[in-house]
Each structure stands twice: as structure tokens, then as C-alpha cells.
Amino acid sequence: MEVRTIKVFTTVDNINLHTQVVDMSMTYGQQFGPTYLDGADVTKIKPHNSHEGKTFYVLPNDDTLRVEAFEYYHTTDPSFLGRYMSALNHTKKWKYPQVNGLTSIKWADNNCYLATALLTLQQIELKFNPPALQDAYYRARAGEAANFCALILAYCNKTVGELGDVRETMSYLFQHANLDSCKRVLNVVCKTCGQQQTTLKGVEAVMYMGTLSYEQFKKGVQIPCTCGKQATKYLVQQESPFVMMSAPPAQYELKHGTFTCASEYTGNYQCGHYKHITSKETLYCIDGALLTKSSEYKGPITDVFYKENSYTTTIK
């Protein structure tokens, strides 16, 4: 009895394709271990004539594949690729409408935090270190965002349907971005203890939790000093293409032309909904596939993004 075979390709990165001759009487799992086709788990399936010449994702289970996976995804987590594939199996079914010149995501599976993050990423200057993220990001900007969303979920250790947080998501993504040249110098002034300067680099240099107003941050924000008295913390120097200011959701007025974009969060910790506000020729609110415009805006804002380049204080 002759062994019926077909020729397929296996890959971990969709760049390096490895030619395989597979036995049609055995499952993919018996031949390769966990195997995925377009995100779908085909591990328990036997090869079919229609699979001839198709590319299958496999887990990096030998040295060659491990090197290829690390170079593309910059992670050695053995569960990463499987999590990416199972997320992709959902995100490829989502709709990605162009809204006001940006790629958004039609609401499904509690994905409003991903839509808000995706919209924000198209408006701030950011370059990702893992080629996987950078490639998928370019495709997302062009309207094909399924891979990018699935990668975000995998890097953030999230599953489809789980509630997510924009600030946490951005923080994970910033860790995989090139923020080497970003720098922030802060000064804390206390009447009792004097003053202390701190220099922050990388992710810490672009994120701040405690106030939404970048102007206020430049002037000074009140913080408790270690001595128990009130101290003032203010920005001395900022070198970065953008800054992200966050605070627990509270009524906040966004003035046209003073910011790049913002995240609105309605609801409580267990259950809520994100919308995205962007400042173009007027203010726009993007909620999944829905767009509304207004000249002014007041609502429960939790993150505001500002364009920056270089700032030095005039406070002496």
C-alpha cells in the first residue's frame, strides 16, 4: 500500500517557510505537534488534498525554529505562539472599519479597549522592536488589523473576551517599542525636605499616572512627601515624541487643539466601556464603527496623549 502524501510549508514567522512532505494517514499533531492554519487549530486533523502548498504555523520545537521565533517575536515564552494563534482565530472574524481616516474595530468580545489602543497607536510616533509587531502594525494602518490585535493580546497575556485596560495595554506595548531616546527629568520640591531631581528613561519617561493635564504637570502637581507634608512635583525636561497622561476616570474637559487623542471610560472596574476622542479640525468621538463630532467635550476621561518633541522648564 502506497503512502499518500502532500507537500506543505511549516513556519513560526510566515517569513521562513520549511518544506514538509506530510503523510495523509496521520494527523498534523502526530507529525508536527500543535499546528495552526489561519489561526485555526488543526492539530487533530489529517492532511487533505486542499492543504497542498498551504502554510501551517507550528510551535518552535527545534533550534532553527526557536531562533526564527525569537528573532521575529522577541520572546522565548513557549506558550506565546499558541496564544497568538488562538487569538487570531477570533480577531480574523472582527470587522476593521476605516473611521475618520483611522483603522478602528467594530465592537465584539469586549474589544473596546483594543480599538482605543489601536486608534491611539496610529496617532503617536512609535516604532516597535519585534519585527512581528512592526509588520502587523503597518498592515493594521492599511486596514488589516487582525494579526496586530492578536499579537497585542498575546504580548499582554490576554484572551479574547476578557476586559482590558488601555493604560495597561499601552504599557505592555511600550515595553516592546523603541523608547531608548526618551528621557524625563522631574523635580520634587518640599518646604521641609528641599528639592530632589529624578531622571527617568524609556517607558517611565512617557507615562504618568495622577493627572490628565500635561500643562498642569509642567506647572506642578501636589504629591505627598515622605515627611508627610505636601510637596510639588513638576516637569523639568521632556525628550520624547509623545507623552501619555493618565488618571482614574473623572469628568474632564478636553479643549480642541490642546491634545492629540484621549480615552474615555464609562462604567466601573468590573464592567465598563471605552471610547476614543481625537482632536482634528474639530473633536471626534470614535466608538467602534461609530463616529460623532463636537466642538467641545466633557466626560469621564482616563488617558490623554500629547505630541511632544523637546521641553525644558522655565521655572527657576
Rank of each mutant, 00 (worst) to 15 (best):
E2H: 09
E2I: 09
V3F: 14
V3Q: 13
R4A: 13
R4D: 12
I6G: 05
I6Y: 08
I6A: 10
K7M: 05
K7E: 10
V8M: 15
F9Q: 12
F9W: 11
F9C: 11
T10D: 02
T10P: 06
T11K: 07
T11N: 07
V12Y: 08
V12Q: 08
D13S: 07
D13A: 06
D13Y: 05
N14M: 14
N14T: 10
I15S: 09
I15K: 15
N16D: 04
N16E: 07
N16M: 08
H18Q: 07
H18C: 07
H18T: 08
T19N: 13
Q20G: 10
V22W: 04
V22C: 14
V22P: 10
S25H: 10
M26T: 06
M26N: 12
M26S: 13
Y28R: 06
Y28G: 03
Q31E: 08
F32G: 06
G33N: 03
Y36G: 04
L37V: 09
L37W: 14
L37T: 09
L37H: 13
D38N: 11
G39L: 07
G39R: 05
A40E: 14
D41G: 08
D41A: 14
V42T: 09
T43C: 14
T43F: 09
K44W: 10
I45H: 11
P47I: 06
P47G: 08
H48K: 15
S50C: 13
H51K: 05
H51A: 07
H51W: 05
E52Y: 12
G53Q: 11
T55M: 08
V58S: 07
V58P: 05
L59P: 05
L59E: 15
P60T: 07
N61G: 13
N61M: 12
D62F: 07
D62V: 07
D62Q: 08
T64G: 12
T64P: 09
L65F: 09
L65G: 07
R66I: 11
R66T: 11
V67L: 15
A69F: 12
A69P: 05
A69V: 08
F70M: 12
F70H: 09
E71T: 09
Y72W: 08
Y72G: 06
Y72A: 12
Y73N: 04
T75N: 12
T75P: 04
P78V: 09
S79Y: 08
F80M: 03
F80T: 04
L81I: 15
L81N: 03
L81A: 07
L81M: 11
G82E: 15
G82V: 15
R83A: 09
Y84A: 03
Y84L: 06
M85V: 07
S86L: 12
S86P: 06
S86C: 15
L88W: 11
N89H: 12
W94E: 04
W94Q: 01
Y96I: 04
Q98R: 14
Q98M: 15
V99D: 01
V99H: 13
V99M: 15
N100A: 12
G101V: 04
L102T: 06
S104E: 06
W107E: 03
W107L: 05
D109H: 06
D109N: 08
N110K: 05
N111E: 03
N111W: 04
C112L: 02
C112D: 06
C112T: 02
Y113D: 02
L114D: 01
T116Q: 05
T116F: 05
A117Y: 03
L118I: 09
L121N: 03
Q122K: 03
Q122M: 05
Q123A: 07
E125D: 14
E125R: 07
L126W: 03
K127I: 09
K127D: 11
K127Q: 15
K127H: 10
F128I: 04
N129W: 08
N129C: 08
N129G: 09
P130R: 04
P131F: 02
A132E: 03
A132M: 02
L133E: 02
D135G: 07
A136W: 07
Y137S: 07
Y137T: 03
Y138N: 14
R139N: 11
R139K: 14
R139Y: 09
A140G: 04
R141S: 10
R141V: 11
A142N: 12
E144T: 07
A145Q: 03
A146Q: 10
A146D: 07
N147A: 10
N147R: 09
N147Y: 10
N147V: 10
F148N: 03
C149N: 04
L151H: 01
L151T: 03
L153E: 05
Y155L: 07
Y155C: 04
C156M: 13
K158D: 05
T159D: 12
V160M: 05
G161S: 05
G164F: 00
D165I: 00
V166T: 03
V166R: 01
V166C: 07
V166L: 07
E168Q: 15
T169S: 04
T169I: 10
M170L: 11
M170D: 04
F174P: 02
F174S: 02
Q175P: 10
Q175D: 05
Q175I: 06
Q175M: 08
H176V: 07
N178R: 09
N178I: 01
L179W: 07
L179D: 04
S181C: 12
S181N: 14
S181G: 11
K183I: 11
K183Y: 14
K183N: 07
R184P: 01
R184H: 02
L186H: 09
L186E: 14
N187H: 11
N187R: 14
N187I: 09
V188M: 08
V188C: 08
V189I: 11
K191R: 10
K191P: 14
T192G: 12
Q195N: 12
Q196D: 08
T198Q: 14
T198S: 12
T199N: 06
G202W: 00
G202I: 00
G202P: 01
V203C: 08
V203R: 13
E204P: 12
E204F: 05
M207R: 07
M209T: 15
M209Y: 15
G210E: 01
T211C: 11
T211P: 03
T211V: 09
L212S: 02
L212I: 08
L212V: 11
S213E: 07
Y214Q: 05
E215R: 06
Q216V: 07
F217D: 04
F217R: 00
F217G: 03
F217I: 14
F217K: 02
K219I: 11
G220N: 01
V221C: 09
V221L: 14
Q222K: 13
Q222F: 09
Q222M: 12
P224A: 12
P224Y: 13
C225T: 01
T226V: 14
G228V: 01
G228M: 01
K229L: 13
K233A: 13
Y234G: 01
L235C: 09
L235M: 03
V236W: 08
Q238D: 02
Q238W: 00
S240P: 01
P241L: 04
V243G: 03
M245V: 00
M245I: 03
M245A: 01
A247E: 00
P248D: 09
P249A: 02
A250K: 11
A250P: 01
Q251P: 12
Q251V: 11
Q251H: 15
K255H: 11
H256W: 15
H256S: 10
H256V: 14
G257V: 04
T260Q: 08
C261P: 00
C261W: 01
A262S: 01
A262M: 01
S263A: 11
E264W: 04
Y265Q: 02
T266G: 11
G267F: 07
G267E: 15
N268C: 11
N268L: 14
N268M: 14
Q270T: 10
C271Y: 11
C271G: 15
G272K: 00
H273I: 04
K275P: 00
K275H: 00
K275T: 15
H276Y: 07
I277C: 01
I277L: 08
T278H: 08
T278S: 12
S279Q: 06
S279V: 06
K280C: 13
K280N: 13
E281H: 03
T282W: 07
T282R: 10
T282E: 14
L283M: 12
L283N: 00
Y284G: 06
Y284K: 01
Y284C: 15
I286C: 02
I286N: 00
G288F: 00
A289C: 10
A289R: 04
L290D: 15
L290Y: 14
T292D: 08
K293Q: 14
K293V: 10
S294A: 12
S294H: 15
S295G: 12
E296S: 13
E296M: 12
E296L: 13
E296V: 14
E296D: 15
Y297Q: 00
K298G: 07
G299V: 02
G299W: 00
P300K: 08
I301K: 00
T302A: 12
D303A: 02
V304W: 00
V304A: 01
F305Q: 00
Y306Q: 05
Y306L: 00
K307E: 09
E308T: 11
E308K: 04
E308I: 09
N309H: 15
N309T: 15
T312N: 10
T313Y: 14
T313L: 14
K316L: 15
K316D: 15
